[in-house]
Every structure is written in C-alpha cells, then in structure tokens.
Amino acid sequence: MTSKPQRKNNPEAVRARLLECAARLIVDHGLPALTLENVAREAAVSKGGLLHHYAGKNALIDGLFDEVVEWFDSQVEECIEPDETRPARFSRAYLRVIAAIDMTVPEEKRLAVLMLMLSSDPHYCARWNQWVEARLLRHEKTDLTPMARTLRLAADGLWLSDLGGGPDSSPSARREILAFLEELDAAGAVPASDPHEGEQ
C-alpha cells in the first residue's frame, strides 16, 4: 500500500499569514480584537500552531511591528535622493513616503497598524523613535536643520490626520500639502546666513 505524500510545512508562509491576519484584525476592529484565538481562527491554524511561531501576543505584535517598519524603511530608502549632500535628504524621503500612502492598497493600509501601535503604546513609540534616531545619525550632515525637522513633523501630522480620518487626509489634500512643502523646502532648506555675521 502506497502512503500518501506528506505535505511540507512552509514556516515562512505560515508566519506571513499570521501577521497578515493580525494586521487585518487591528485595522478593521482595533487593538482589542487582537487575541491569539482570533488570529488563529482567521489564519486557519490551531492556537498551538500559532504559539509554535510566536510565543504569545506580545511576540506576535513585535513581529508585526518589525515587518511594518522594515517595509516603511525600504520605501524611504527607495525615495532618498542619491546626492549625499542634499539638505534634508532623509526628511524629504520620509515626507514623500507618508504623503504617498494609499490606504486603499492592502500593503499600505497595514501602516495603519503602525499608527495605532504608536498612538497607544509607549513601548512602540520608543522603538519607532529608535529607528528615526538611527536614520538621523546616518544623515546627521543633512537632516538636523530646522527645515528638515519641519518636514518630518509635517509628515507625522499627516499620519495623525490619517489616524483620525481627518479632512486633510484625502489624496488631493496630500498632494497639495506635499507640493507646498517641497516648494518651501526648495526655498529654505539651506539656512540663511547669520544676520549679525560680520558685525564688530
């Protein structure tokens, strides 16, 4: 008698499905909906199978956070201009990525997960700040100016508007805001000379 072929497990695919289901639960129903039981049911795995990949709810959220930040980081990297001396180089890319987010695209909608985490948990706020600080350290020669900080704070404001579904989060408003900020950046990214320079 011939035995049935064994179906090979694909741990990476299972982890990806678990994270996708966790993200969907948070985006659609908020953080309280994220329970191990709900994620396991949505992903069509047993709770024991979930725990094999993620030791608990915190480990699952950590995995989701890491995945979303990795995606965001890759988008910023793609947007950074090649000229390493360009003022506000990182901050401009940071703004462009956030301004271009399309919440109708599932992969990009997952950024809502990050926004929810950052707005409700000091632990993830601290981890996000660590990512930003690491980037600023890498781009300290171009991105520690008032203009660079202004661009990043404007981008954070767009995220906050998305979180609350505000009127300024529409695609047309985003394009208008981005165009204005880029014009402002072009005019003021390089600090003006000291008005007192040369005085005795």
Rank of each mutant, 00 (worst) to 15 (best):
A148N: 09
L144N: 11
A59R: 07
I80A: 04
D194E: 12
V113I: 03
L178G: 01
M1I: 04
G49Q: 14
A16M: 14
Q6R: 13
S172P: 00
E182D: 15
E77H: 13
T104W: 02
M117W: 10
S161G: 13
H53M: 05
Y94Q: 05
E37K: 04
I80F: 09
T150S: 12
Y54R: 13
E176P: 02
R175W: 00
M103T: 02
K8A: 11
T150D: 03
Y54S: 08
A55P: 04
P5F: 02
V39L: 10
D66R: 15
Y94M: 02
A187D: 08
Y94E: 01
K57S: 06
H123V: 04
A44F: 10
I177P: 02
N129V: 02
M1T: 12
R96I: 09
L31W: 09
S46F: 06
R92I: 00
V14L: 11
D121N: 15
H52R: 09
A126M: 04
M1K: 05
K109M: 01
A93W: 09
K141D: 15
L151M: 15
L163K: 01
P195F: 01
A186Y: 06
G166A: 12
C125D: 00
M103Y: 06
R152A: 05
K47N: 09
D121F: 05
A88P: 11
S46A: 03
W128G: 02
E183G: 07
L34P: 06
E37N: 03
Q6V: 15
L153T: 10
P11Y: 13
Q75F: 04
W159V: 09
M103C: 00
G165H: 12
S3I: 12
P146Y: 03
G164V: 08
Q6I: 09
D121M: 13
D62Q: 13
G165S: 11
R15A: 11
H53I: 05
E176Y: 10
A134E: 12
S161A: 15
G30C: 08
R127V: 01
L95Y: 04
W71Y: 14
N129W: 07
